[in-house]
Amino acid sequence: MKNILTEIVAHKRIEVAALKQQRSVEVLEQAAWFKRPTLSMAQFLQDPAKTGIIAEFKRRSPSKGVINGTATVQDVTTAYARCGASALSVLTDEKFFGGTSEDLQQARTLNHIPVLRKDFIVDEYQIIEAKAIGADVILLIAECLTKQEVAHLAQFAHNLGLEVLLEVHSGDQLEKVTDHIQSVGVNNRDLTTFNVDFNRSCELAPQIPAGKCKVAESGISNTDAIITLKQAGFQGFLIGENFMKQDSPARAFEQFVTELANKSVQ
């Protein structure tokens, strides 16, 4: 199978070069949201009054095609926030995931919890853009960045007041964690094949450096998985497809949270 991540990153570099020609850094820095104080996703994830769930708005993916072509950012993200999501994740990649910067801006306008920009960050420009469109957190993917690139981009984000979620897929990638990274996410989905191995999170959890918020990503489809992951030391749980594939992602999330709450008090 072709390496999907390599294809996405190659396209992203071309896309970013074009964006730089369309809108300068100076213009981005004039955006109203560029000056706003950001919210800490790490703090929200560890708030016992919330679920620890980073609920994602995602229209499609390279592996599944269209997941939900009718749900709106307004209906879905406001329901997520209302029902106890600790943070929102919004896809802004258009070519492969059907997302837009406007989706994130709308989520930011409507909600008062941290918003993660879910994209393939390879350039400082995208981090400035993330701040300008209202993001609180950016995603860095260890699989497609060198240790030096991760360190540089994480510090650049930190200097802008943004938090960083570093996504890893194997133990050796944990050497890329730096002081400027607040959360470490273990992606159960292999980004080169898009196959899912749920046990990956539990295997890597003990290896994540102390003091970092632990986030499990992908393949979480039931409340028992959350309970197991909490026991393994995870505080955050990024879930998107499980809700987005339903006719009503908002209702699916509400039911999931209710079931989780009932199990947590047993």
Rank of each mutant, 00 (worst) to 15 (best):
M1I: 09
K2N: 08
N3A: 01
T6S: 12
E7N: 04
A10K: 11
H11D: 13
I14T: 12
E15W: 07
E15D: 12
V16N: 04
A18L: 10
K20F: 01
V25W: 04
L28F: 03
E29R: 12
A31N: 09
A31Q: 08
R36F: 07
R36I: 03
S40G: 08
F44V: 00
L45K: 08
L45W: 06
Q46K: 14
D47S: 03
P48W: 02
A49S: 10
K50V: 01
G52Y: 06
I54V: 12
A55T: 03
N68E: 08
A71Q: 02
A71V: 05
T72Y: 08
Q74N: 06
T77S: 02
A79K: 10
Y80V: 05
A81H: 01
R82E: 11
A85T: 01
S86F: 10
T100A: 07
S101N: 14
Q106R: 15
Q106K: 13
R108G: 10
H112E: 15
H112R: 15
I113T: 09
P114M: 13
V115Q: 09
D119Q: 07
D119V: 11
F120V: 06
I121A: 04
D123S: 11
D123G: 09
Q126G: 05
I127M: 05
A132V: 10
A135P: 15
A135R: 10
A135M: 13
D136V: 10
L139N: 10
E143K: 14
A151K: 13
A151L: 07
A154T: 03
F156N: 01
A157P: 04
E163R: 02
L166W: 09
G171M: 02
G171H: 09
D172I: 00
D172R: 09
Q173W: 04
L174G: 02
L174W: 04
S183P: 00
F198C: 00
N199Y: 07
R200E: 04
L204W: 06
L204M: 03
Q207V: 05
I208T: 12
V215K: 02
T223Q: 15
T223L: 05
D224G: 08
G233L: 01
F237A: 10
I239D: 14
E241M: 11
M244Q: 14
D247M: 12
A250N: 09
Q255R: 14
Q255T: 12
S264M: 13
V265L: 08
Q266I: 06
Q266Y: 10
